[in-house]
Design a protein around this nucleic acid. Structure first.
Lengths: 341, 341
DNA sequence: CTTAGCACTCAACAAGCAAGAGTGCTAACA
DNA sequence: TGTTAGCACTCTTGCTTGTTGAGTGCTAAG
């Protein structure tokens, strides 16, 4: 039941032709454009076999053939070639990601940005899960008579701050004391540890002023920690779908946009994907709404540990070779710039 | 050329009917549904007059009448009634905006959120311009052997921080010295002053270690200030347009989404609008792409000064009365929660 | 096994037609 | 003078029908 050399060649021709033209491809076109050395009739016979084996489908009797998910899978696994990015593309990418400031979130946003521009698809990126991230220190700084800034710094370099409105004025010394006490207590613990264990309740101190301060700050400390756990999702190139023939009817465009806009749902899908480059084609996606889409993701690393993801979503007919190369190139770049020397 | 009482009543009926039905309204429907006390024929005569005066249009000979921009303008200025929000809506809004933590950006995002949910339109919000905002202090904190966190606090309570990767290790004392020196220099100055004037170049110090540190930090200080000036734009309910008949063809939906997605352009439009509740209808909008849309914005205040904006964009056929009330209610709430007691 | 030839199928487009909604006008009425 | 009924007219919408072109499947010959 293995495919012959010729069948493979025909299949490859059909897939690449359909990927660029979006039109069902017929036997005549095939034999002309790709000089296969055989006549259309022969190709028809072969195509008929391929259809029987589930690699091709037939929108209707008198239309050409269209690759099935299975054909794309074969194409991705065995037929497609690596694509080397052009110099100008490489330059564009590095320029977008450059900068000696490590601004994690912004850099990732830019990565999603450039990805959608180069691929003309809808791109996305998520920031790493932070739950294994350890706290480095906590700082509470004065801002106003009754306003303070709570600042939490994690070992990864992630910083989060919240402006807090206190009910009463405070003493600056209490602030720095409390900062030190909290840092002493929580340093080196992971964020999720702090959240799940009961250490927060047990935070007690004998110094009266500090204890009152702690009372109003602790709940917000927890909230801020919580928000540090949040995974950010960046989407870009949403309107690109309008130039893709697959979405040239309202119903489909709507479905697509609504699917991607269910951000939490979409985040979950991304979080649960494996590391490395992962391609899921059409019905291989577990989500019903994604059955007509292909998803390509790759992972980037921060200091070789924390893992975030980046990728594109689009119709099953997409330039798998090119897109994969771009995504890999970008995630490599990201990992490198997020790794301290 | 003043409109008679009856013409006004007819116009009001047409506008409200069309706003809910989205169908051209004919004379027969009008006299039946809104018992005007006159026959369809009479109404036809009146409608004919109204059309002559530019309040109504005619998609084609045998269709009902459709209100023009001018009719909506009249409706908004004179005919529409205030709408009181339901208790449950009020509750939903306050719940969304509640919280004793002042997290400016997040609260504003939530506001845009609830606005689109209640109105079923596309909503947006922008954060205030920060250029009149004065610096309160600057803090440079240690994070790693060669990493520091630069933190800038403005008088409004706005906080911004950047993680900086230094080329060489530093002394903690130099950090706190530099923080103090910078604070001393820039406190009380507005952000745009600092950026435009030359004070940055002139930042000099005799202490050797500090000066080297300052050299690598100053450029990033400027960048961070720059990013503080950035106005954030939050959009929500984009996919709502798919349930609006006006956008039930691909071309229009595409145009709409692309217009809103040109974020910088859209930001500019918003920034340049007047304070208070502003309604612009169809061709009243200066932007070409917005000629088919109406825009309603209102302003909220932070501590009675800094001004941000919130609003919706949708087809000219929208529930002006309801939407205006919701927007006003939300901005009032925002202003109140952003004002320290 | 490959190929030429031919009948067959189906989508897409255009043209024609009927039904329905709504108007504009005219003439009669209060 | 304002209001109304009646009627012809217009235009959209949906339906049907016919035509064209692309492409297939099958058969028989090379």
């Amino acid at each position: 039941m293995e495919l012959t050399e010729r069948k493979l060649r025909i299949l490859q021709a059909i897939v690449s032709d359909f990927i660029t033209s979006a039109e069902p491809v017929g036997s005549r076109t095939l034999s002309k454009k790709y000089d296969m050395g055989v006549s259309p009739a022969t190709i028809r016979n072969e195509m008929s076999d391929l259809e029987e084996q589930g690699y091709l489908t037939h929108p209707h009797t008198s239309a050409g053939r269209v690759p099935s998910d299975r054909a794309y899978r074969l194409y991705v696994d065995r037929l497609m070639d690596r694509v080397e990015l052009s110099e100008s593309e490489k330059r564009r990418i590095s320029e977008h990601l450059a900068g000696n400031i490590i601004e994690l979130d912004r850099t990732i946003e830019h990565a999603a940005n450039i990805l959608s521009e180069i691929t003309n698809l809808t791109s996305f990126a998520i920031t790493p899960k932070q739950d294994e991230n350890k706290l480095k220190y906590i700082n509470i700084l004065p801002a106003d008579e009754s306003t303070v800034v709570l600042m939490i710094v994690a070992e990864s370099g992630k910083v989060k701050n919240t402006v807090l409105q206190l009910k009463a004025p405070y003493h600056e010394e209490s602030l720095s004391l409390l900062s030190k006490a909290m840092t002493y207590n929580y340093r080196g613990k992971t964020i999720s540890d702090i959240m799940t264990m009961d250490i927060i309740r047990n935070f007690e101190t004998d110094i009266e002023a500090m204890s009152r301060l702690a009372e109003s700050i602790m709940p917000n400390f927890v909230k801020t920690l919580e928000s540090m756990l949040d995974i950010n999702l960046y989407l870009d190139g949403l309107t690109n779908i309008f130039s893709i023939p697959e979405y040239n009817n309202l119903e489909k465009a709507k479905t697509f946009l609504e699917m991607v806009n269910r951000r939490n749902n979409f985040k979950d899908v991304l979080v649960n994907r494996d590391e490395g480059v992962v391609i899921t084609i059409g019905a291989e996606n577990s989500e019903d709404l994604m059955r007509d889409c292909s998803l390509i993701t790759a992972t980037y690393h921060i200091n070789g540990k924390l893992v975030g993801k980046l990728g594109v979503i689009g119709p099953t007919r997409m330039k798998y070779d090119k897109v994969t190369s771009v995504i890999e190139y970008i995630t490599d770049n990201l990992s490198r710039s997020f790794t301290l020397p």
